[in-house]
């Protein structure tokens, strides 16, 4: 059979995954702290029908061989950790991270998760938690009689209590950086987990060793650019279409071949 059928089929497959990823990006255009994904493609292996450089019968060398490629495949789906825009919320527990770094949270399984969606809340005990109720690591409790909370760019959290004139220091919010953030595993809910590829996290105070700083009263918006996604969508759809045309053409060729003997 004609290889073109399968080759164009791999092209359609790849574009289908591409559209899936674009759709997920667009669906999260308003998700705070969301980082877009990107599909990276590669060509599949080649079948060499004739190798270049070999000697022909007359002793000449074949300058160019015959190589037939077998289509495309998905090489990786990469998270793009580009900074998102900031949105002012004036909520004292909303923090945006300017620069590299993730907040560390303890997931219900006891494992550590990392997030950039820092719309923090208080639970019934006064502990600082994420919207999903996951505790921050290191954990921090806000006293019941706190009037206002201030979070400094270097991570220091202090609260003004109703019975004291001087603000009381509660602790420090630490940031974790990774050698290769693209290697993190996405858990959904804007949470990421450490993998072998991401490397071990380096935790420390914001602002030190290239870590980003904190900005209170702001949230980091999704880094999805709608215009760019729309363009990618159009390109992806057209690429899908042209692959289907190649399948049609290969099919027509087979039909002609079959009609030789009537």
């Amino acid at each position: 059979m004609i290889r073109a059928l399968w080759t164009a089929g791999t092209g359609m497959n790849v574009q289908q995954v591409n559209l899936d990823i674009i759709a997920n990006n667009i669906a999260n255009v308003n998700t705070n702290g969301f980082k877009k994904s990107r599909a990276d493609f590669q060509d599949l292996m080649y079948q060499t029908l004739r190798l270049q450089g070999i000697k022909t019968g007359e002793g000449n060398e074949v300058p160019t061989g015959i190589e037939i490629g077998h289509g495309a495949m998905l090489a990786a789906v990469q998270k793009v950790f580009m900074q998102g825009d900031f949105q002012e919320t004036q909520n004292e527990l909303d923090i945006a991270i300017e620069g590299n770094g993730f907040l560390t949270v303890i997931m219900p399984t006891g494992e550590k998760g990392y997030t950039r969606s820092a719309s923090l809340k208080r639970d019934s005990d006064g502990k600082i938690v994420t919207s999903d109720g996951y505790e921050l690591d290191p954990s921090m409790t806000i006293p019941k009689n706190a009037i206002s909370i201030s979070i400094r760019p270097n991570g220091t959290v202090s609260a003004k209590l109703s019975d004291q004139s001087e603000p009381q220091q509660l602790g420090t919010i630490e940031l974790a950086t990774f050698p290769n953030p693209s290697g993190l595993k996405s858990m959904g809910k804007c949470l990421y987990m450490e993998t072998d590829a991401s490397g071990t996290p380096i935790t420390g105070k914001p602002g030190e060793d290239g870590r980003g700083t904190l900005l209170q009263g702001f949230l980091e918006m999704s880094n999805v650019n709608v215009m760019q996604e729309m363009i990618n969508l159009i390109i992806g759809q057209r690429a899908y279409e042209v692959n289907s045309k190649a399948i049609q053409a290969a099919d027509e060729m087979l039909q002609m071949a079959n009609n030789v003997r009537r």
Binding site: A8, G11, N243
Partner: peptide, 27 residues
């Protein structure tokens, strides 16, 4: 001629399948 045309078609299909592959060079 038919056999050659089939090969030609296969090359076209491979190029089209890699229309969005970064750094791909057409055959």
């Amino acid at each position: 001629g038919k056999a050659v045309t089939e090969r030609r078609m296969e090359m076209v299909a491979n190029n089209i399948a890699n229309a969005l592959t970064a750094g791909y060079k057409a055959s």
